[in-house]
């Protein structure tokens, strides 16, 4: 759809970058106490988990001993998964109501009769939700810095993990916005988005293990490397492949019974994950843009 046309004097680059919907979302998001509480509880949860993990590792390894890099790596992995879990919990909650919520508040029709294109509206909604999530996740960096005190983690890994989070938010955000556009009621949209998220985490893992079992029964001697690709649909497995690069090789070269020397896979688990979900997110956003306004042409 055509982007909004400029007024008489044309729109400046700033006006194009910060369009009205995005501007509104930024402004209104910070006017509600809810944002403050979301940030507070998120940081509280992640901080509590970090402190508990440090406490537990000290209890296990005995008090008074130095904190070794290997333990801090375990702590980092733990924190990374905890954060992924929190994102999976927060993403659908923040995005699955952005369109249906406007519909329920009866503000959507007013927005749809303006000159803003469906693309602008949907992408602005996504950008504003993402920016809030990014703000929250970035605000957890000091918690991660505790891990740096003890070493064992490369800055590249940390950066990759955070980029992975942003991608994950984009994916969940796109799904949330699509369901929010497709379903009239926020409640249903939220439930479906959480359902999809649950499937991404638990469903794909379950499918992987079931397929491992089934293929072991059916063809015990064959190389069933395709089974490994099921895990490329799983965010937790993808994250783990960033933290421990060897896991991709192990998964793709899975053999039911022993086998020859493993080959180097074309893409690692997280790279394949990004390819798959980039396509799915793009499809979700495309659907949302198409379905925001009723189809008028016959």
């Amino acid at each position: 759809m055509r982007e909004q046309t400029a007024g008489k004097s044309g729109l400046s680059w700033r006006a194009k970058l910060i369009n009205p919907v995005l501007n509104k979302e930024f402004r209104l998001r910070m006017r509600t106490p809810r944002s403050m509480w979301t940030l507070f509880f998120y940081l509280f949860a992640i901080g509590l988990m970090a402190l508990s993990a440090i406490y537990l590792t000290q209890v296990i390894s005995g008090s008074g001993r130095a904190f070794d890099p290997e333990t801090s790596k375990v702590l980092f992995i733990f924190l990374s998964f905890a954060q992924l879990g929190l994102i999976a919990f927060m993403g659908p909650g923040l995005t699955a109501g952005v369109v249906s919520g406007e519909r329920e508040k009866q503000t959507l029709n007013l927005l749809l009769t303006t000159q803003q294109s469906s693309t602008t509206i949907i992408l602005s909604k996504l950008a504003s939700s993402l920016s809030f999530m990014v703000l929250i996740v970035i605000s957890t960096i000091p918690v991660y810095s505790m891990v740096f005190l003890y070493g064992g983690i490369s800055p590249r890994q940390l950066l990759l993990v955070f980029l992975f989070y942003i991608f994950m938010m984009l994916v969940l955000g796109s799904f949330g916005i699509m369901f929010s556009t497709l379903f009239k009621r926020t409640m249903i949209s939220v439930i479906v988005t959480y359902g999809i998220t649950l499937f991404m985490f638990a469903g794909t893992a379950l499918l992987f293990f079931v397929m491992v079992g089934v293929m072991q029964e059916l063809s015990p001697n064959a190389t069933n490397s395709w089974i490994g690709h099921i895990l490329a649909w799983n965010p937790a497995a993808a994250l783990y492949s960033i933290l421990d690069p060897e896991v991709s090789q192990q998964v793709y070269n899975y053999r039911s019974m022993g086998g020859s020397a493993p080959k180097k896979p074309l893409l690692t688990l997280w790279q394949e994950f990004i390819v798959i979900y980039s396509v799915l997110s793009a499809l979700a956003l495309w659907t949302a843009i198409r379905k925001l306004r009723p189809r008028l042409k016959r």
């Binding site: 909004q4 046309t5 400029a6 007024g7 008489k8 004097s9 044309g10 729109l11 006006a15 369009n19 009205p20 919907v21 501007n23 509104k24 402004r27 209104l28 006017r31 509600t32 007013l110 927005l111 303006t114 000159q115 803003q116």
Partner: peptide, 19 residues
């Protein structure tokens, strides 16, 4: 959460009217 003026600014901007 909008103020009256902001409300009109929002819709004005949505119609591409310069600030």
């Amino acid at each position: 959460q909008f103020k009256t003026v902001e409300y009109l600014h929002f819709y004005g901007a949505s119609y591409g009217i310069p600030k």
